[in-house]
Write a protein that binds this DNA or RNA. Sequence first.
DNA 1: AATGAATGAGGTTTCATTCAT
DNA 2: AATGAATGAAACCTCATTCAT
Lengths: 197, 197, 197, 197
Amino acid sequence: MQSLTSTSHIDSRRLLLLDQAAACFRRLGYQAATVRDVAGALGMTTGGIYAHYGSKEALLVAVYTRGVEQIYEHVQAALARSAPKGPDRLRAALTAHVEFLLSGGDYAQVVIRVMPDEAPEAVRAELIRLRDRYEAVFTAIVKDLRLKRGIDRRVFRLLVLGALNSTQRWYSKRGLTPSQIAGCLFAMLGSAIEETS
Amino acid sequence: MQSLTSTSHIDSRRLLLLDQAAACFRRLGYQAATVRDVAGALGMTTGGIYAHYGSKEALLVAVYTRGVEQIYEHVQAALARSAPKGPDRLRAALTAHVEFLLSGGDYAQVVIRVMPDEAPEAVRAELIRLRDRYEAVFTAIVKDLRLKRGIDRRVFRLLVLGALNSTQRWYSKRGLTPSQIAGCLFAMLGSAIEETS
Amino acid sequence: MQSLTSTSHIDSRRLLLLDQAAACFRRLGYQAATVRDVAGALGMTTGGIYAHYGSKEALLVAVYTRGVEQIYEHVQAALARSAPKGPDRLRAALTAHVEFLLSGGDYAQVVIRVMPDEAPEAVRAELIRLRDRYEAVFTAIVKDLRLKRGIDRRVFRLLVLGALNSTQRWYSKRGLTPSQIAGCLFAMLGSAIEETS
Amino acid sequence: MQSLTSTSHIDSRRLLLLDQAAACFRRLGYQAATVRDVAGALGMTTGGIYAHYGSKEALLVAVYTRGVEQIYEHVQAALARSAPKGPDRLRAALTAHVEFLLSGGDYAQVVIRVMPDEAPEAVRAELIRLRDRYEAVFTAIVKDLRLKRGIDRRVFRLLVLGALNSTQRWYSKRGLTPSQIAGCLFAMLGSAIEETS
DNA sequence: AATGAATGAGGTTTCATTCAT
DNA sequence: AATGAATGAAACCTCATTCAT
């Protein structure tokens, strides 16, 4: 299993900083979160942030990168234990995706919550690239699926991920668990997918 | 068919203003859109906006209200031509919803794009109320549906709407039409729903 | 008894307008009161005000002028019934002054409340002139008074008027009446003034 | 001698800032003074002010607090050297009051000049509370005084302070000194107060 | 005489960012 | 690595005033 990106060697101070940035971006969105919010959460002043990251944008890219990396690895780990293709593989991927999205911390949530078009121009393309690379996993899985006639593979993928990503807006620990939600979606999709013979 | 709200009698100048506000909010989001953007699109100065709407918030509420009103009426019109219950009714509603979302102009898109939690505290509750009132249409339809065992009605509704609303992020006129997308989703859901006898 | 100024021939619409301007200036001060406040109190729009008075400044001058005129006449009327000089004359003037200030409506109160230096440069001199002309009444009365040695006439007059004008800040109908307050002050001053032989 | 409030430990930069704020508020009043005026007096931009005080209101409260503190201490110091009760004590307090008001700098003048009702709603109560606490000194002194029959203690206090505070509007270094003015007032009051036997 | 829309100047405030220390 | 003060641009909003109608 190969890493998609590499944010590995950041010392622990930087990591704590990034954690808080992720928390702020997740809670407030990129625009509404201020550098001071992040600094405040760390007991620092805003100036201090800039010793580690050169701009608010850079923070977002770092969070985003890490979020993609994390969820990617989580999904890959699940896939390693799953069939090489077919509905079970999709199920494994979707379940892992939604599990990590809802319970995996702030990083992955930022990836879903912050749409590239609310990020500054300068980094927009980078965010899209990161996210597309991740979603390629699903593109690949869907490609190996036998779908009912009339179902466009791309639209299928986008709708399914759209459905799961929307859970972020209403998921609560008091309701169904993430994997129950994935199960529910999969149950709904039953007829969309012909069983492999 | 009864109106959900009433933004009917705004004179045409105000309406043009609201149109531009809707366009800006849709294109940029609430936070990134500035009052100057709206004013500029009308060839006005920012102060001029405030002769009509007392705050940027008020503008958002007006746009949101109108958006909900519009899409609600579109869906109601479709429902008036549909079966009183069952899968066809859901299909009609979903198709109308996605059609209007993708082709109905900026107002409805703002309703989907602007999450209440990026709106100022003061109006958040109002936006949620408006949206909930609209979504109640779907709650009612889903209630009269026979779902496969194990599928939670609430989760079903939220996932289906989540899937359709996510189309806003990737829909393009060059791909499938809105109703084809709805059809695609419905095809995917085939087995989730037991036919009414 | 001769009029100090002449704001006599204003038609009744203008007068109602001025009444509200006086009310606003008294309640909020000149700066805080907006032209819209005045218009609103009349059920008009701001533009309408300008059909009668060319500027906010002009409104202030008109109110001020009328306020001075009113209190001047009230005091003159009291003086007409009083001794030609001596403590009783002062008492009559002070009593009339404080009575009118506290019960004579908004105009006079504006004269006391609005210090010329919060008015725009352009009218400051005019306001000072109006007020000085009024206060000349007291200057004259004090001039004919026999004060205890060591009491400066000008300071005497300014302190006495200052004391009475300050009542505006704390006077309430539930406490002493205006003339009781004047009586109280006069009692306090007993020894400052030597009786005329 | 106990301090009424504590604005003691503000570093010198902040103090210079507050000095200028006090100067502006005194010269122009709260409403007319702009944050830019204050910043300009310090060679800063308006934004810079907000690193120290979160709002114009906060600036006013800080100035007011300091003003009350200063004049309070000045009066207390004078009282420490005076008789424990009686006319001399009142005289000491009044003299100290007017001396500090007229020669003690901008802070105290702001306390007298800026009426709470021209301050924003949010801080009005606080300003009144501060000022009332200070004036309690005089209430206490007046309580221990033997006043001529028919003189209400509260009205006596309010008129005396009103007279002295009004000096702010006309005092000039070229005329009587502050303590001469206080002396003059006291002379005027001679008969209001019965000598303690 | 009055409205309603608009202006334009100016107000307070926010915030990413910089920089000397 | 971090602070604290400061900047400068830009945001929302207010308000006296104007003007076509």
